[in-house]
């Protein structure tokens, strides 16, 4: 039996390193998503997936197809510029494929939707109209509905 080379331990170590390197590169190649963006370091498909998420709110343009008249009426008065969905909720809960799914109801049994914006609080902007129990509101009972006197689409009296 020939004597083993005096450098055989180095060859073994080198061999192990090469095998380890190949293993590492193989695992890395398998673990890296195919669309990986190496410049900015993220999965390139991710923004496309997020962009494909469904929309719930459509903006006022999605309401006008059926409710043009009401929309124009609101635009003529104090609540102009307001989004329909601010009070009525997301359009997808109300309509789909041009058909009505459910009522886009506003809570008419209580005042919370009105007071949500118009309650008199110290944080409100100076010129924002808030409900104050003075002048015109002197005779208002605590349990009276705002909608008794005010029409939400034309809130002025």
């Amino acid at each position: 039996m020939p004597n083993p080379s005096p450098r055989s331990h180095l060859y073994r170590l080198g061999g192990l390193l090469v095998i380890g390197l190949i293993g590492f590169l193989a695992v890395k190649a398998l673990a890296t998503p195919s669309s990986w963006n190496h410049e900015d370091w993220y999965r390139g498909d991710s923004p496309k997936e997020i962009a494909a998420l469904p929309l719930s709110y459509g903006g006022n343009e999605s309401c006008q197809g059926c409710h043009k008249k009401t929309h124009d009426q609101v635009e003529a008065f104090g609540h102009k510029g307001l989004s329909c969905e601010s009070c009525h909720g997301a359009v997808v809960d109300h309509a789909g494929d041009g058909k009505k799914i459910a009522d886009a109801k506003v809570d008419m049994e209580s005042n919370w939707q009105c007071m949500n914006c118009h309650e008199d609080q110290i944080t409100k902007p100076k010129f924002f109209p808030t409900f104050k129990p003075t002048k015109t509101h002197e005779d208002v009972d605590a349990d009276m509905l705002c909608s008794t006197c005010h029409e939400a689409h034309n809130p002025g009296l």
């Binding site: 494909a52 929309l55 719930s56 709110y57 989004s83 969905e85 601010s86």
Partner: peptide
């Protein structure tokens, strides 16, 4: 992001009164 890519404003901006 999904709304802006579809040409809409973010939901919070849409409903801000």
């Amino acid at each position: 992001y999904h709304r802006v890519k579809a040409g809409k404003l973010p939901a919070c901006v849409t409903v801000c009164p």
